[in-house]
Design a protein around this nucleic acid. Structure first.
Lengths: 214, 214
DNA sequence: TAGATTGTTAATCGATTAACAATC
DNA sequence: TAGATTGTTAATCGATTAACAATC
């Protein structure tokens, strides 16, 4: 039901609020936080904090604010951060390996990090069959259709070259993938029910370049 | 002057249009493109394409469309993609190295790729003095203030751990940095004249997780 | 010329912020 | 109680889309 109403930008901010609450809890252990303070830390207006939260329920007390531990758990539930999310990477190049290790390290070290890397895929015969950090097996991309349901992969990270990305995505969509994070610098096409986000470093750089003195 | 009027989201789309035009030019070599077709390829409305471009001039011909080579050069000029942009990376961990190599490779292989990696910075004595791919020297972070002007660094990429990022940024700001791309999963504070963009993988994953079935 | 497409104005849509009664 | 802060409605702001005269 909630999927119907909340805009994407609100979900992004909820994820940010959650991160902030987890940091506060770890470091300070204070009990209540006002929308003003949470907003300041997140860089948004306090009215926006209250409005974002109000889309999902009433979590605060007038005159007091939000109980930090309670709000944190509510946000974890809303964002599915209270269960393990299985992630796989397609494309075991430099970036793929860097992201894999980054993810493995955070999963090992942080008690609440929900993203577990369960597999990697690549077409290079020299890579297939090997493991990343002795734990994550590398499968051929052709095995995506079987492995996706078998390993209960929730999110697929795409780090193959741009000209290979659409074919990978087509295969994954046919196998029923629901969420994709694409690092390839190209637009991809998926059916509406599949969630697709982009992370595009060279587009970011190009955007920043605009603001330099010419 | 142009810095005054164009919203951030327009600049992002201009960078996308430019990428598309460069691809078309490389592959097909057609002469004109309509706002309809460019919009379809970019995933935006044709009126939006025309409005975005109209902020910077009149680049099209009624009844015909936009001459591809001409529009491409105009966009390259607007976005500063027609000159070399010097980039440096602070934080030579997995991600930093992956981004460095990725950038070096594209600079070598693509004739119009404007981003050149000129330096890296890290505090690990085992890394300082070594080079990435035999070309990019690693300096201690303490040398940021001298190297920034000396190497004419335009954009700084931050890949240090979250708890070290603000100190790095403070140092860079004092040394006059103008644009920063931050990969550390934390909010950073900079004066308004400094342009700061974020690339936050775990926030993206958390956002995607929301859309999964609970 | 007739058809197509631009540049731009007007209409719509959605998101952000201000304001305030309710209430802890 | 008095002060503070929520949840929510109303006002504002800005971005997107539709429409169309101008014109290639």
């Amino acid at each position: 039901m909630r999927k119907l109403k909340a805009p994407d930008v609100v979900i992004r901010r909820l994820a940010l609020y959650l991160r902030i609450l987890q940091q506060i809890d770890d470091e300070e252990g204070g009990r209540f936080i006002s929308s003003k303070e949470l907003g300041d830390r997140a860089g948004v207006n306090s009215a926006q904090v209250r409005k974002d939260l109000a889309l999902f329920g009433e979590f605060g007390k007038q005159g007091v604010g939000y109980e930090i531990g309670y709000l944190r758990e509510e946000l974890r539930a809303i964002l599915n951060a209270n269960r393990t999310i299985n992630v796989a990477i397609v494309g075991v190049g430099e970036l793929g390996i860097a992201l894999a290790r980054y993810n493995l390290r955070r999963f090992t070290r942080e008690k609440h990090y929900p993203f577990r890397l369960v597999a990697a895929f690549d077409n290079d015969p020299a890579k297939v069959g090997r493991k990343i950090e002795k734990t994550v097996e590398i499968f051929p991309i052709s095995q995506l259709p079987e492995r996706l349901p078998e390993l209960r992969i929730d999110i697929l990270i795409i780090t193959v070259p741009a000209d290979a990305a659409q074919a990978v995505v087509d295969l994954a969509v046919k196998a029923g993938v629901r969420a994709i994070l694409n690092f390839a610098p190209t637009k991809l096409f998926v059916p509406p029910k599949v969630r697709l986000h982009y992370s595009d470093v060279s587009l970011e750089l190009q955007q920043l370049a605009y603001y330099l003195e010419s």
